[in-house]
Design a protein around this nucleic acid. Structure first.
Lengths: 203, 203
DNA sequence: TATCATAACTGAACAACGTTCAGTAAAAAA
DNA sequence: TTTTTTACTGAACGTTGTTCAGTTATGATA
């Protein structure tokens, strides 16, 4: 009775093909140019076929979103095992940067775009968000146990640190740095992170 | 020969009516639900009429964008004349917050949305952006002259401060705080700003 | 006042979008 | 071989931004 299993396998392969193609298009040409029709064209199926594997575009977007978070965690796992938690915290910032600028369309979807989600999607989605956020919070707590950030609420401090790094990233990704000469922009992005890091060091 | 002038006046009034209606819809129901057709319906004209006053939707968006910046500057002008530049800097953060949360759709358009702009629009647009950015840079420079932020590049520091405040605001506006209990979110937003302010104070 | 020219406006259409559904083709079960 | 189930698609619907030929209204001209 391997037929049902082959069927199931083929179904998942098709779903994966759609998903992978969509994610590729997403990273290549951006969100707004990735339509159901362009995805369908690229996999050489009718647009209607996609709806046999995903309820609607939101569900597809959400699936890409999950993949994006997976990659996000892969980046996080490259965080070296350092003794100094403060150094680790600063490294985490750089890894966050690398992910964002390597995969700007993913970053968009994860942290910038107004994501219209179903209520049942929201849970899983924010489990992902919470999990990555915990990495930061744990590290901040480590820093506090090592004597840094005394008398500061861990939660609030973590959020502020995230907000700062996200702020730097999203101003760059959404091109809100045009008041600076183009040649300086990239450097300013990294200098801002470095300055933030050095300020944190002195707290 | 007041006819030509009346014509001109009427033309500008019409343009203003479209613009004001569009901005209202924008703030009321958000960007994605503000279509040329809904604007046209609200002013009881045909959609085609709007194209007699604005080249395309981008130009209309850009005009709203300008209005948004005007309001932004109005908020800035409520900045009290304080002797301590650090206190002023912190007040500026709160004013920025107030503008953003009072006019989230404007904030979206100004600092979050991927704005597709013509090259000739870009100049004026970033003149606005640069002008508001200068307010911050000048203030940071004042702080430095008063002895704060020694050995820090004014440009980079200003950008980092902006990025932090923008980060806090945009994570809230784009609903990326769902890992925190809802009752805490608003408070966390303000606490994050306060914590950032207190950290700056100690630098 | 009647005619003409210009300006203001609109209905209908276009292409592209997400989405649905009746119908076809292929494969598995009977 | 027939029947049932599955996989897929073409065509359509309603929405979007946008264009344009054609209509209506208004000021200028005679």
């Amino acid at each position: 009775m391997g037929i049902a299993e082959r069927r199931e396998r083929e179904k998942q392969e098709m779903q994966d093909l759609i998903l992978t193609t969509a994610a590729e298009l997403f990273l290549e040409v951006g969100m707004e140019k990735t339509s159901i029709r362009t995805i369908a064209e690229k996999i050489e199926y009718s647009p209607a076929t996609i709806y046999l594997y995903f309820k609607d575009k939101n569900e597809l977007l959400y699936a890409i979103h999950q993949r994006a978070f997976q990659r996000f965690f892969q980046y996080f796992q490259t965080l070296p095992q350092l003794d100094d938690p403060m150094e680790k915290l600063q490294q985490l910032g750089h890894i966050y940067f690398k992910f964002a600028f390597d995969n700007p369309a993913f970053y968009d979807l994860m942290f910038i775009l107004k994501a219209p989600m179903d209520s049942d999607q929201t849970e899983e989605h924010w489990e992902m968000g919470a999990r990555s956020h915990d990495v930061l919070t744990d590290l901040v707590l480590e820093c506090q146990q090592a004597g840094h950030f005394q008398n500061k609420d861990t939660q609030v401090l973590s959020h502020m640190i995230w907000a700062t790094v996200h702020g730097i990233v999203s101003l760059k990704i959404r091109e809100r740095m045009k008041m600076y000469p183009e040649a300086l922009r990239d450097q300013m992005v990294y200098d801002s992170l470095e300055m933030f890091n050095s300020i944190l060091e002195s707290v």
